[in-house]
Design a protein around this nucleic acid. Structure first.
Lengths: 194, 194, 194, 194
DNA sequence: AATGAATGAGCCTTCATTCAT
DNA sequence: AATGAATGAAGGCTCATTCAT
């Protein structure tokens, strides 16, 4: 069975398994063995490829962020005009890929991990900065200098919706979350005199 | 040496020590021994009083919620008129008592705990419902049926600000968070045609 | 069964068990579990009392050194005159207590440990310095300035005999080793012109 | 790329790498992977050539012994007369080749290994017997029947010096060790009446 | 009321070794 | 000839929890 070039395959399998396992368990109290088993290999191999537990977590986190970033990029490419672009960014966050229980659980736990791990903290900051600049970039043409604060609020509400969704396990209504953020967007755009 | 009435004192000390320890460690990977030591007693005694680790966590969580609730109550009592009351509720969330690193870390971790523990989940829902109804209660006189959605957005932004604050450890700017939520409130109130 | 004041008893049992286990296994590839089992307790308790494997080793090493030191001290106390004292020091090293397979194996392994552990190195140096100064102290009255080098040779032969004894497991002839060192001593004392 | 005659080269590289690695680590807790990497090959290949870890150790040990034996042989060849020959044997042990930290560490660890491995034990005995007979062979013409015991003492001091040198890592003074053994030799030769 | 004593269970990690290519 | 892939086994260590005092 052993083939060559297994490394990327194994790594990908482990990253996905990590997300799934965190989703299944609900927190970061996840054993390397469980992740490895879910990925169909021994825990020793997982260590061989990643070096340690934290690095497995970080890789999984990067994976989630990468998927999210790709989704945003695609959505932006298809959008026409600033308003459509902002809406695209918002909708991407609540897409079926990102708004699933497993992924939400992973995000939430990554926030916790970020309190301890410098690397995790950095990754999350990258995400936040990117979201912020995406929003500002398209808000500015429409509302000028108020774009900065508006972006903070919109991003804040997105995260808040995520957080709250983490609680209501199972009954996730992505549509509602999306609508609330879009409603906020509408207000921000209409609100001439702040 | 004292023999009578130690229990409530011990329990209170343990709850506070739990918050502190979670804040210090940054996550729920907190040992009962560490908590007990911080509270100045043996871990065996901690078990004796609370029965187990999860129950210690839950008690700490209730404590945080209780403190928060008291703060809101006091703020509401001092406020005059619906607008002032809403502002009071918002400000309470970012008060110096609740917006400290330790407490934020505790909150964040309770969200994670709520994904596993039914009791924790219930407690967090109580908090959310209370916040929601507080907001709706005073928004309705001003904006009628739009109060429901507005409350969802405001509460969402409050939670989102908390979440984001958990990341920017140390550089907490409660004022900014408060301002952003108040700005949202202003928009919600002004926004006649939704 | 749990009593109070168990700590010193447990610690002593662990130290002895460590010596025995090293002797039985023949090297430092000794598991904490095996030591603990030999001492009649769980490995967790061993960790509780000593903190870790290396510290268990060091404690055992100190124990061996302490026993040796006590034996030397007693022997010195009973000896009359410089010559008798030196002979006492030499004989102590090959006493039935110190020249047993277990203890020899332990010594040999401690030498290895001393190459890695700073603490172990220090302990062994203490032993060497003490032996050296003991020898010099009583040699000097008899052979003056030649005492230094004579002491180096005598101590060296003592250690060498130990080393060689480590190989000939089982067939330990303490008497021969002692005789050889005493013979060296005789030469050192007689050798007027060096 | 080469295909023929690689085996002896690979084996030699592994033996040397083993010595180096033991010297670097300070004990026998040396991984096959580390040895193989140092020798520039995969650990699988190391197993392929030697069969297992212990056999790698034994091969390295034989290598050390072989180098030592060659050095002694050369020295003996150049020496004229019994006294010169004995001195040559002594000096060989403390030659720059054999008295280096790496090699000393290896020797020391081989002594430990000899307590467990029958093969290692045998190898070390071969060394000891050879040293002994070398010494006796040239001592006998000079001091007759006293040669046996003198050889034991000289060999013992050589080993003891080695052992002590293992401790004083870095500050190796081969000259002093040599001088002490030569001084002992002088005494043994002069000492008419034992 | 309070604690030292004690442990079973479990996790991360390492490593020698094997196997297919 | 040589190696990447893979794993079983084991070890050190931690921790929640229990118990006798």
């Amino acid at each position: 069975m052993p083939k060559l070039g297994m490394e990327p395959i194994r790594r990908a399998a482990l990253m996905q398994a990590t997300i799934d396992e965190i989703g299944a368990v609900g927190n970061l109290d996840v054993t390397v063995s469980a992740i490895a088993k879910r990925a169909g290999m021994s825990s020793a191999l997982a260590h061989h490829y990643f070096g340690g537990k934290e690095q497995i977590f970080l890789a999984a986190m990067r994976h989630v962020l990468r998927v999210y970033a790709a989704e945003v990029r695609d959505a932006l490419r298809a959008a026409r005009g600033p308003h459509a672009r902002i809406e695209a960014v918002i909708r991407a966050g609540f897409s079926s890929t990102n708004f699933q229980p497993d992924v939400i659980a992973a995000w939430l736990n990554f926030y916790v991990l970020a309190q301890t791990s410098e690397d995790a903290n950095r990754l999350l900051h990258v995400y936040q900065r990117r979201l912020h600049s995406n929003l500002v970039h398209d808000l500015r043409p429409m509302i000028g200098e108020r774009a900065e604060n508006a972006a903070v609020r919109i991003a804040g509400l997105i995260d808040g919706s995520y957080l709250r969704q983490g609680l209501a396990r199972g009954t996730g209504v992505a549509s509602d979350a999306t609508e609330q953020v879009l409603a906020l967007l509408a207000m921000e755009l209409k609100d001439i005199v702040e």
